[in-house]
Amino acid sequence: MTKDSEIWEKFKIGDKTALSYIYFQNFELMFQYGIKFKDDPDFIKDCIQDVFFKLIKAGPNLSQTENIRYYLFRALKNNIYKELNKRKKLQLVEFEQLAFEGQFLIEDELSEKENASSKEKALLKALKSLSSRQREIIFLRYESGLDYDQICDIMDLKKDSARKLVYRAIKLMRDNIDDQLQIPIYLFFNFSSKYVF
Rank of each mutant, 00 (worst) to 15 (best):
K128W: 01
S193W: 01
L123M: 02
F27S: 00
D147W: 13
F27Y: 03
L62E: 06
N176G: 03
E136D: 07
L140C: 05
D50L: 11
E66G: 11
A58T: 12
D149C: 03
G14T: 14
F27K: 00
I68S: 09
E136F: 03
Q91V: 04
S132D: 10
Y142S: 06
C47D: 00
A169L: 10
K77D: 04
S129Q: 09
N79S: 07
N85C: 08
A116D: 08
F27I: 00
I22G: 09
V196P: 01
K128M: 07
V51P: 15
R141V: 02
L19H: 14
A99P: 00
A18P: 15
E112W: 01
D160T: 15
K89N: 13
D178A: 02
A169G: 14
C47W: 02
D160K: 14
A58G: 00
C152G: 14
Q25C: 10
D50E: 06
Q91M: 03
M1H: 15
I80R: 07
F24Y: 08
I183S: 07
E83R: 08
R135I: 09
L29G: 03
D40K: 07
K12L: 06
C152E: 10
R163S: 14
L110W: 06
K16T: 12
I7T: 15
F191I: 03
E120A: 04
S193N: 04
P41K: 08
L29M: 05
R174M: 00
L84M: 13
